[in-house]
Design a protein around this nucleic acid. Structure first.
Lengths: 159, 159
DNA sequence: ATAAATAGTTATACTTTTGTAACCAATTTC
DNA sequence: GAAATTGGTTACAAAAGTATAACTATTTAT
């Protein structure tokens, strides 16, 4: 029971640790070669395309980015007109960030570009494996997205 | 049919892109704070714990690391006595790398340390989600590990 | 036997990310 | 209303990763 669960957790972590460089390999690398954006700013776009509007602090928290780095990355995205600052009327310290229409379009194209190599590899999978990968990535994403996000307040304030 | 598959692939890629910073967040960060090794050298240990013995080139290929970077990381690991160089008798240019016993022990402990935070979060999952995450990470790992390994360009022949 | 290719190292310049500290402006607390 | 806190920016140093070229030594090919 407990032993059994512990083994499962170890294996899950083992798998995730192994997975990480595989994703870095395929994604981070082509981000660099195919776009003029940093990986970091693309992660921000990824978060924004899920959460619509996030404050600077929330971005830093969700992505574990130091605040100064968030500022720098967002500045870049604003220079590219991909996101915009929205000043919060209820608390004028807060700077909310939202993607522009241009940003959404560009991001879509960039994702296409960046994942070109991976797409080709995935395309070669047979139907059963494709389905399997589809379901599994969805599960991993959902569960991890859920448990790794510190929306439970306090944990996100420190950074 | 084709349309349907394309949608699936898009979604898979969407999921993987979203997943990547989540893993970075939980893993890379605590690697830095809890060990005196670079993330890069831990990825090498991860590969070595799966493949037993790899040449310098194979390491670089599997992790998409530039060869000079591999040299630097392996030097660090050797300084920590976690891996050792094995000179290939059949081709004296090749330098094979293998974990030492100390390396295996240390790596195990480091993984435990590094995944502490994630472990606590996963532990809170109910049994069904735990099982689901277990299965899914395994599938994603296996399939990605399979298709992301380069056999096309230069080397990376061993799997 | 010479030329070409391969495996790995060294050196160097560069980009990206991380980490601190100081700072301003706005808000909250008391 | 003074003091403390918070959200964000600026500035700067350091770590980590990337990219290239040049080099040694070994091996392979012609």
């Amino acid at each position: 029971m407990i032993n059994n669960e512990t083994v499962s957790i170890d294996r899950i972590i083992e798998n995730l640790i192994y997975l990480h460089p595989l994703l870095s390999k395929s994604l981070t690398r082509s981000i660099r070669s195919k776009t003029n954006l940093n990986p970091g700013s693309l992660y921000i776009l990824g978060m924004l395309s899920k959460h619509e509007i996030l404050s600077m602090s929330e971005i830093g928290c969700k992505l574990s980015m130091p605040k100064p780095h968030v500022t720098a990355q967002v500045d870049k995205l604003i220079a590219e007109e991909m996101v915009e600052r929205l000043f919060d009327p209820t608390d004028r310290r807060i700077v909310n960030i939202r993607m522009t229409e241009k940003g959404k379009e560009d991001f879509k194209a960039i994702k296409q570009e960046v994942s070109q190599d991976m797409r080709e590899r995935i395309t070669k999978l047979d139907e059963q494996k494709l389905k399997s990968l589809f379901d599994s990535t969805q599960v991993v994403r959902d569960i991890l997205s859920d448990i790794m996000t510190d929306t439970k307040m306090n944990l996100c304030t420190k950074i």
